[in-house]
Simulated scan of single mutants.
Amino acid sequence: MGKTLQRWAMKDFGAAHLVQETVALPQPAAGEVLVQVKAAALNYRDVMVVENGMGMALDWPQVPGSDMAGVVVAVGSGVTRAKVGDRVVSTFWHGWHDGAAPAGIAALGGPLPGVLADHVVLSQEDIVLAPATLSDAEAATLTCAGLTAWTALVESGGLRAGQTVVVQGTGGVALFALQLAVAQGAEVIVISGSDDKLARAQALGARHGVNRSKHPDWAAEVLRLTDGRGADHVIELVGGDNVAKSQAALAQGGRLSVIGLLDDMAFNGSIIPFLQKRLTVQGIGVGHRHALENLVRAIDRAGIKPVIDTEYGFDELPQALAHQARGGFGKIVLRVG
């Protein structure tokens, strides 16, 4: 093992301020592990953190990125959750292990130091064992996107076989929601502006695809496809005026999982449909460590393979972020180790 590590860091906002740098390799303190990072997955959040910090006060230099898979290469005293040689993935939140989120939790990659480095030191509380059935690149996608979909549908949503789920788009969270819902025995309707992406989503198990460019009132199509009943669960990834369409697409007693803000940070819509349909609205902020452990077991048992659009080399972070910003079919991943 060398005495230095390579990492990406930013000293101001904007992709132009991202630089690769060499720093001393830290050693794990008590309760910490040193992980050789093998792969790191990007999220739209990373694009926003680089651009403007999402309103957070960051300490420069800031290392971005929250999602990684790697191998433990050293442990500090008192570590019991992992040993040298274990394959692990990072948790998104530092300090949220189970139950309701405690006050003051913070995420890796902003405001806490991130994982876009060839080695990282993490608390043993901020890792879980990686799925045995996934590659490093696949395992890295679980931390944020996979866990967000799992929390929305299973941990909080109580999804059951025979229910109908509407998924908006074909990004990382959306495709995880599709795959997890199909594995649970649910029927999935995917909304997208691309016939090609809809065909690919149907190949993954979606029952129906609705092209929002051809059907701007896509909620009416959902009602038609469900014989007027509506969906039991809508994964809301857009925000703004799209929320009203999500409301209209839901069945009586349906559940709206508010996850994304790809179009607008506002939440626009009348309160009347919520009352008339007795809807449940839940905000999803990824999830806790225990839920990630549950997801890992489900991934291994169900044989789910995360969808990766493109893998980039570690030196290609700017190109990978640009790809993430314009969107992909599934996840964007950096090969690190």
Rank of each mutant, 00 (worst) to 15 (best):
F13L: 08
F13K: 11
G14R: 14
G14Y: 12
G14K: 13
A15N: 02
A15E: 10
A16R: 15
H17Q: 14
H17S: 12
L18G: 07
L18V: 06
L18A: 08
V19M: 10
Q20F: 03
Q20K: 13
E21Y: 09
T22H: 01
T22L: 01
V23M: 03
A24W: 04
A24R: 12
L25P: 00
P26V: 09
P26Y: 08
P26M: 07
P26G: 10
Q27H: 11
Q27E: 14
A29H: 12
A30G: 01
A30V: 03
G31N: 12
E32A: 15
E32G: 10
V33S: 11
V33Q: 07
V33A: 14
V33G: 07
V35N: 02
V35C: 05
Q36V: 00
Q36I: 00
Q36A: 15
Q36H: 12
V37K: 01
V37Y: 02
K38M: 15
K38A: 14
A40K: 03
A40S: 15
A40I: 12
A41K: 02
A41V: 03
A41D: 01
A41W: 03
L42T: 05
L42A: 08
L42I: 06
L42M: 10
Y44L: 04
Y44W: 11
R45G: 09
R45F: 02
R45W: 03
R45I: 05
D46M: 05
D46F: 06
D46Y: 08
V47Y: 05
M48S: 11
M48F: 12
V49L: 14
V49Y: 09
E51C: 00
E51G: 05
E51N: 13
N52L: 01
N52M: 06
G53P: 11
M54R: 12
M54A: 05
M54D: 00
M54L: 14
G55T: 08
G55V: 10
M56L: 12
L58K: 12
D59A: 15
W60L: 10
W60Y: 13
P61T: 01
Q62M: 14
Q62L: 13
V63P: 07
V63I: 15
V63A: 10
P64D: 04
G65P: 12
G65T: 08
S66V: 05
S66H: 06
A69F: 06
A69D: 04
A69T: 07
A69L: 07
A69M: 08
G70M: 05
G70Q: 04
V71P: 00
V71R: 11
V71D: 08
V71Y: 00
V72D: 02
V73G: 00
V73M: 05
A74R: 00
A74D: 10
A74P: 00
V75W: 02
V75N: 02
G76L: 10
G76A: 08
G76W: 09
S77K: 13
G78R: 06
G78P: 11
G78C: 11
V79Q: 04
V79E: 04
T80P: 07
T80A: 13
T80K: 15
R81P: 08
A82E: 06
A82M: 09
A82C: 10
K83A: 15
V84M: 11
G85V: 06
D86Y: 02
D86I: 08
R87D: 13
R87E: 13
V88F: 01
V89E: 01
S90K: 03
S90R: 04
F92T: 09
F92E: 02
F92K: 01
F92A: 05
F92N: 05
F92C: 07
